[in-house]
Amino acid sequence: MTSQRIGVSTVRLVVNDEPHELEVDNRMSLLDLLRERLGATGTKKGCDHGQCGACTVLLGGRRVNSCLILAVAASGASVTTIEGVGDGTELHPLQRAFLEHDGYQCGYCTPGQICSAIAMIEEAAAGWPSAVSADVGAAKVSLDGEEIRERMSGNLCRCGAYVNIVAAIADVAGGRA
């Protein structure tokens, strides 16, 4: 990340294990960089205000809203998008679970739902509490339906496929929705 001209910077990113170096307008979001410059259109633009979660990607392994991150501010980081969650031949278990449980209707929120759920399951495994955890100090988290719904509340589905989304995530998380 260095600024040569006013408003333009060189950004270095590793996206789905592939390094990239490109000049971007400082105003460009990470979301627009992924879609418009790298052609990685799996990540979707919903509200563009951090309210819907359709743009969720993993930045350094953590789920974030890529619409509210300036590409220049992400320089140096590694990003995983929906295109990178599988191993190239096999689907990620969450992708398979969304298929098996019919966890979508139009599919627009699905990439964000899956990226979010991948990180959410890891957060729970690390013992992070949530707003519905009875004891904020408890060392272990059991991902029941209530916990999944709360932890996934940053991902909206306008088709209302929530019931099957929760079932798909519970299947992979080993809980019961």
Partner: peptide, 10 residues
């Protein structure tokens, strides 16, 4: 934990 979403808190 009562504020925003998991993504925004990150």
């Amino acid at each position: 934990l009562d504020g925003a979403s998991g993504q925004l808190r990150n």
